[in-house]
């Protein structure tokens, strides 16, 4: 490989002439940045980038939005990341409920939602807790403080998910995973090392143009060596041990459960719920919520998109009835979804 010396990551990628390679970027922010920067344009045709299931908004089950709307209808103030506001439930979104008078407050952090609850003791305030290991600690901090400080009017509606069993469920869909840098900033690199033992290869990637190109260059180069590998290409943020205090906090506040991933079905033990000690702040228990099951559009091919079995533009709904303005499927509902990024950044146009 000495002839490669001095090449930039972009040149390594452009010059790749090895066999067909499927690289799955697991993380929605990676998907978004890869499209925004136009990185796909620099790749040779035999490198396929598959946009995996790492956009929490996309994989959140339809019924979760229906649950949030049910709470809003009871007069509960909904606090949420902006990402969820336009996501359609079975018949409505939070944006349409807000237009009809529901209180929907967009926040930057679950801690801000807690502050809102403290400032409005006359309201019941529920934070919609979505997101993976990166986002879970913020929710846990908020609910833990609510319990400790007796903020009785604050609760969480939890749909958090974790990655390990998703990797296992998807391991046949890709030759190399581009691991989500910020999930592993929390959990560390142990799981990635273990996956090598099971024959699963991956590169842990950061989020700048240079970091993404470098991670992809590492992926195509190491893949040619013919044996499973793991490289941490984001060591300035991800340490082998992760952030232990965050992991401990998650374990103290939440426990694993089976959960449905929109488009992929139920993945065992890949969800989180609040432990019994936090029952008073668990919106489902606190408000005695009935079981609510949402309905997704059966024509949507998101499940196949998330596994790389088809491109967004292969779906009959894509760009016609399913657009970012009126999304039908999981991958179109968030700016970080595979279909949405493909549509917005001109995946089939340029």
């Amino acid at each position: 490989m000495s002839e490669a010396k001095g090449k930039t990551a972009a040149q390594v990628l452009a010059d790749y002439d090895g066999p067909h390679l499927r690289i799955m970027e697991v993380c929605g922010t990676h998907t978004h940045e890869i499209f925004r920067l136009g990185i796909r344009k620099l790749l040779p045709p035999q490198v396929d980038l598959i946009s995996g299931p790492g956009c929490p908004v996309c994989v959140t089950q339809v019924g979760f939005i229906d649950e949030a709307l049910w709470l809003a209808d009871q007069g509960v103030t909904i606090t949420t990341f902006g990402d969820l506001v336009r996501v359609p439930g079975t018949t409505r979104s939070l944006a349409s409920a807000r237009a009809e008078g529901a209180r929907v407050q967009v926040v930057y952090s679950p801690l801000d939602a807690l502050d809102y609850a403290k400032a409005h003791p006359e309201e019941q305030v529920c934070f919609l807790s979505v997101g993976f290991e990166t986002t879970v600690p913020a929710s846990c901090l908020a609910v833990d403080q609510a319990l400790a400080q007796g903020v009785d009017n604050f609760s969480l509606l939890v749909a958090n998910k974790t990655m390990p069993n998703a990797y296992a469920a998807l391991k046949d869909s890709a030759d190399v995973f581009l691991y989500p840098g910020h999930v592993h900033a929390i959990t560390g690199t142990g799981l990635c090392e273990d996956l090598v033992e099971q024959g699963v290869s991956g590169v842990l990637a950061g989020f700048t143009a240079k970091e993404l190109l470098t991670a992809l260059a590492v992926a195509v180069t190491k893949a040619q060596e013919g044996k499973p590998f793991f490289v941490n290409a984001y060591p300035r943020v991800v340490k082998p041990e992760g952030t232990p205090a965050a992991v401990e906090l998650i374990e103290r506040v939440m426990e694993p459960c089976d959960t449905e991933w929109r488009g992929l079905g139920v993945i065992p033990q890949s969800g989180l719920r609040l432990r019994e000690a936090y029952a008073a702040h668990d919106a489902r228990k606190k408000f005695d919520m009935p079981h609510i099951e949402g309905k997704a559009n059966p024509a949507c091919r998101c499940g196949e998109v998330l596994q790389g079995h088809c491109k967004p533009s292969d779906c009959p709904l894509f760009g016609k009835v399913c657009t970012p303005q009126s999304p039908v499927g999981a991958c179109m509902v968030s700016g970080e979804g595979a279909c949405s990024a493909y549509y917005q950044y001109g995946g089939d146009l340029l």
Binding site: S109, A185, P235, R236
Partner: peptide, 12 residues
Amino acid sequence: AGIAIAKITDED
């Protein structure tokens, strides 16, 4: 989301 998730030890 309002919390520090890691210390950064170098420039990219």
